[in-house]
C-alpha cells in the first residue's frame, strides 16, 4: 500500500470573513489594500493561502492573511468600509487547514468529494466549497497540490478521512 499524497495539518492561518456587496467598488479597493489582490471571479482564489482572497458566495469572501497580522488587516478593512454596509469578522480560529500534496492529490479528494476533479475540469487557482465525506469543506488547487479548509470542530474527522483516503494505489483516471 502506497501513499497517494502527503497530508499536512497547519497550525494556524489568519482568516477574515467579509460579507458585502462585492460589486461595490469600495469593497474591491478595501480587499486590494488588505491583501494586494482583486476580488476573484466565482469559484476562484486570488493569491494563495498565506495572503489571498477566496470567493465563498455572491456576497461573501474569505480573506487569508498571516495569522499575526489579522487584527491589523481587519482594522484596515473595517476603516476602509466605514459607511458601506458590510460584515467583517476575524474567524482565524474557526477552521482547520490541511495541505494535500503529491502527484495523486486530486485522487485523494475525488474519493471524498462529489466534485469533478479531472485535470481538465479543475486546475490551479480553482476553488470549490463542497462536502468532504460527511462534513462541509472547501479546497483550492495550487502548484504543489490542494489546500483544504473545514470547520475546526470537525478537523480531526477531516484529517482522519484524508489520511485514510491517501492510502492505496492511484487509478490514473483523473488525468
Amino acid at each position: 500500500m502506497s501513499e497517494l499524497a502527503t497530508i499536512t495539518r497547519h497550525a494556524e492561518r489568519g482568516m477574515i470573513t467579509l460579507r458585502a456587496d462585492l460589486s461595490d467598488g469600495t469593497v474591491g479597493e478595501a480587499v486590494r489594500a488588505a491583501t494586494g489582490h482583486a476580488i476573484p471571479a466565482a469559484g476562484k482564489i486570488a493569491g494563495d493561502g498565506t495572503k489571498g482572497v477566496l470567493w465563498m458566495s455572491p456576497d461573501e469572501l474569505l480573506i487569508m492573511v498571516p495569522y499575526d497580522t489579522v487584527d491589523a488587516a481587519l482594522e484596515q478593512i473595517v476603516t476602509a468600509l466605514s459607511g458601506v454596509h458590510h460584515l467583517a469578522v476575524n474567524v482565524s480560529d474557526a477552521r482547520a487547514v490541511f495541505t494535500v500534496a503529491g502527484d495523486d492529490a486530486r485522487e485523494v479528494l475525488a474519493r471524498l468529494c462529489p466534485v469533478d476533479l479531472h485535470a481538465q475540469s479543475f486546475g490551479v487557482g480553482d476553488f470549490r466549497r463542497t462536502r468532504l465525506a460527511q462534513v462541509p469543506a472547501a479546497f483550492w488547487q495550487h502548484e504543489t497540490g490542494f489546500d483544504v479548509v473545514c470547520f475546526r470542530s470537525v478537523g480531526d474527522y477531516a484529517e482522519g478521512v484524508l489520511r485514510r483516503s491517501a492510502q492505496g494505489t492511484p487509478t490514473g483516471a483523473l488525468g
Partner: peptide
C-alpha cells in the same frame, strides 16, 4: 445559478 457549480444532490 449563483456560483455556477454543478452540485451533487448530497451538497444540496
Amino acid at each position: 445559478p449563483y456560483c455556477g457549480v454543478q452540485c451533487d444532490e448530497t451538497e444540496l
